[in-house]
């Protein structure tokens, strides 16, 4: 449907891009096919300035307080958090697995890095996701071009810095094409230390 254009308010600090928050939650009874994924994902708001971001974000449940199988996504406005989206179809994502209890802090830090344009990879960043699961939580950052190694390495190195990850943290990269093939977001990844 049509949504009104979101712009920075008077005196607010504009962001380089507008970003849209999405929320999804899997109903355990339903298969995780593309159609049910699209039906389960809901757009919850778009922000255009630093101030609008904080207003929106401070009303959201912290991801660490979510239960069950759910995800928050923050993507550039106009990019759906789906593998098939035009901006994502040649892309992939870095995956960081977090033990329980860390998701809220890491989610905030990765968002601030993205909103503040800390990655320095041109137009490559599409968005970030925090995935709440039963045993662990998972942080992902999606970029447009999976086979651009200069970009993916720079994203990885920036993540280590902005999240202050210990040097032995395992980071995994998975192309969306591979996710489509095995119908899984987090299995069969390429490990990078």
């Amino acid at each position: 449907g049509k949504r009104k254009t979101v712009t920075p308010g008077v005196g607010e600090h504009p962001l380089q891009y507008n970003y849209t928050f999405w929320y999804s939650r899997r109903t355990p009874s339903r298969p995780a096919n593309t159609q049910s994924y699209e039906q389960n994902i809901k757009q919850i708001g778009t922000v255009a300035s630093v101030e609008q971001f904080w207003k929106f974000y401070s009303h959201l449940v912290r991801p660490g307080d979510l239960t069950g199988h759910s995800d928050f996504h923050l993507f550039k406005e106009g990019i759906k958090p789906m593998w098939e989206d035009e901006a994502n179809k040649n892309g992939g994502k870095w995956i960081i697995r977090l033990r329980k209890g860390l998701a809220s802090r890491f989610w905030e830090n990765i968002i601030l890095a993205m909103l503040g344009e800390q990655f320095m990879v041109g137009e490559e960043i599409c968005g970030v996701v925090v995935s709440i699961r039963f045993q662990e939580d998972i942080l992902s950052i999606w970029n447009k071009t999976a086979n651009d190694q200069v970009t993916t390495s720079r994203i990885r190195d920036t993540l280590r810095r902005v999240l202050n990850l210990p040097p032995n943290t395992i980071m995994e990269y998975k192309t969306h094409n591979d996710s489509l093939k095995d119908n899984s977001s987090f299995r069969n990844t390429k490990i990078s230390l």
Binding site: Q16, W54, N109, L112, G116, Q118
Partner: peptide, 21 residues
């Protein structure tokens, strides 16, 4: 064009600015 870059501290400082109250 120029890119709008904000560091973490700048963003955190805006969290409690009068505009977000």
């Amino acid at each position: 064009g120029t890119r709008i870059i904000y560091d973490r501290k700048f963003l955190l400082d805006r969290r409690n600015s009068p505009l977000t109250q």
